[in-house]
Design a protein around this nucleic acid. Sequence first.
DNA 1: TAGTGGTCTAGACCACAAA
DNA 2: TTGTGGTCTAGACCACTAA
Lengths: 240, 240
Amino acid sequence: METGPSFVPLYQQVRGILLGRITDGYWKPGEPLPAEPRIAEELGVSPGTVRKALDDLAAAKVVTRRQGRGTYVTEHSPDTALFHFFRVVNAKGHRSLPDCRELSRHHGKVNARERKALDLPAGAPVYRIRRMRPMEGRDVLIEDITVPATLFPGLIDGRAPLPNTLYDHYQRAYGVTIRRASETLRAVGASDSVARHLGLATGHPVMEIHRVAIGLDEKPIELRITWLATDDFAYHVELE
Amino acid sequence: METGPSFVPLYQQVRGILLGRITDGYWKPGEPLPAEPRIAEELGVSPGTVRKALDDLAAAKVVTRRQGRGTYVTEHSPDTALFHFFRVVNAKGHRSLPDCRELSRHHGKVNARERKALDLPAGAPVYRIRRMRPMEGRDVLIEDITVPATLFPGLIDGRAPLPNTLYDHYQRAYGVTIRRASETLRAVGASDSVARHLGLATGHPVMEIHRVAIGLDEKPIELRITWLATDDFAYHVELE
DNA sequence: TAGTGGTCTAGACCACAAA
DNA sequence: TTGTGGTCTAGACCACTAA
């Protein structure tokens, strides 16, 4: 028989309260939180307890602390979004950042794979976007993005092209913050379509990456399937 | 012009002292450290400062805290070594652990790639080991391991087979602790040799993983090149 | 029962940023 | 100059483990 913890530490309760206010949009990305002593007296706990809660949230990148200025709700920028979630390096092992060229966008209904990854009901409407992400001027990376239409109404209905980095756009335009992502990598032979876009022979080995991006509330937000030609680039991970 | 920090916080100095004693073997893997108040009075700092230093080392998995028992120098076990550094999942996305079958072992001198990865002088002696790591009974993973002979004298000279998990063996038998690892992944066509071992056609897409394992002192310890057939297995990462 | 780490408090002083 | 987070101290009490 499973028994829960006999008590919940105060600082974890405080962390939950603060996270709730951020998730609910009471404090918005880029905004400063009240000073630590202010939060402490409001909640009736010691400043040290608030500090520990904020340290936890800072470690999870939910808030960003800046000495002498204050504690801010973390705001994705094009740079931070790429820095946290883009792990491709060039032949020298140096981080390299992609450009962007949109290939197609469609309305549709979830297929089986998307349903499973995004935990959606059958028939739920989705948007699908296919983009080329050239690296150092070469077409080596292509990605298929699927998001629930209900979360991002009108995302692909405008005439303007979508921004290069979507996660900061999700946050700014829809209040949806990506907190973390889960990636599954395989080596596959390039399909006709992928091979054509990447200038390879059909069946040439490419890396296929399934990414599910998870929001502040731990719910899946986006499914992204990437194909990367690893002849001149590679995927890099630090295991700690 | 680069200017260093104007001062080094006390808790970071304490962390450095404690890490030094562990690196030097003054406190050995599996042994308990003195209690926090004991360390504090020995170093002449406040218990809270020692606590913060130990929290840092625990986050880096250098020490392990056990409530009610004490703080211990982290000891690799077969399970922890695999749990931290083995990221292969089966088709259902569940973690799966490999068996081990040694294929060959050799003495040799570093080649160019190993020199670069392991930061060794030209002509340095190395040991090379090739192993099959069957997953769920199938030959899907093969690995080539290179270590400097000077670090692990006699490692491959015995008659007994090497243990399935090497990192805990490095620690127990040679006092060398692996702290983290850096992996670079590519999709490649299987070479004749790899294809034969994995039962694939030459050129079949496989994942090639270059891993450099780093020690407590941040120096490279081991180079390991892995080929994984990703038809029924995959490599999984969490990005945070 | 004794000893450990885990939590919580209350305050002092310092480094840093902005007005 | 003011206010922020960063560091450091000094203790109290609680939960957990092992003898």
